[in-house]
């Protein structure tokens, strides 16, 4: 429930920013949306098991699902590379405005 509410807030904020004018706001919106989707993937593992999947420390009985964690870990880094690429686009050429004068 709590995670779902968090995701709702983040998606709403991300979508709002993405639909505004200007590359930077779009990038920020995408960033937020990316975080939200990562949390969504995490929640797919089930949020009732919350021990770390470090078998040297914890027994596996209550360890969280490691597969979504691996997905999200790589997703974070990919999202980062995309974001810095989009920021490059925002700062090159001319202004980061994405629309003609309104």
């Amino acid at each position: 429930m709590t995670l779902a509410v968090t995701i709702a807030i983040m998606v709403a904020g991300g979508v709002y920013l993405m639909l505004q004018r200007g590359m930077v706001r779009i990038v920020l919106g995408l960033l937020l949306l990316g975080h939200a989707v990562n949390l969504l993937i995490m929640s797919a593992g089930g949020t009732f098991r919350r021990d770390q999947p470090l078998l040297g420390i914890n027994p596996p009985d209550w360890a969280a699902d490691p597969l979504p964690q691996a997905f999200v870990l790589t997703a974070i880094v990919i999202a980062f590379s995309i974001v810095i690429y989009m920021l490059t686009l925002a700062a090159s050429g001319s202004d980061d405005d994405t629309e003609d004068a309104s």
Partner: peptide, 14 residues
């Protein structure tokens, strides 16, 4: 869209 995402997360996970 936030409502949709939240509902989906609540409905389909865990």
């Amino acid at each position: 869209s936030g409502l949709v995402a939240g509902t989906a997360a609540f409905a389909f996970t865990g």
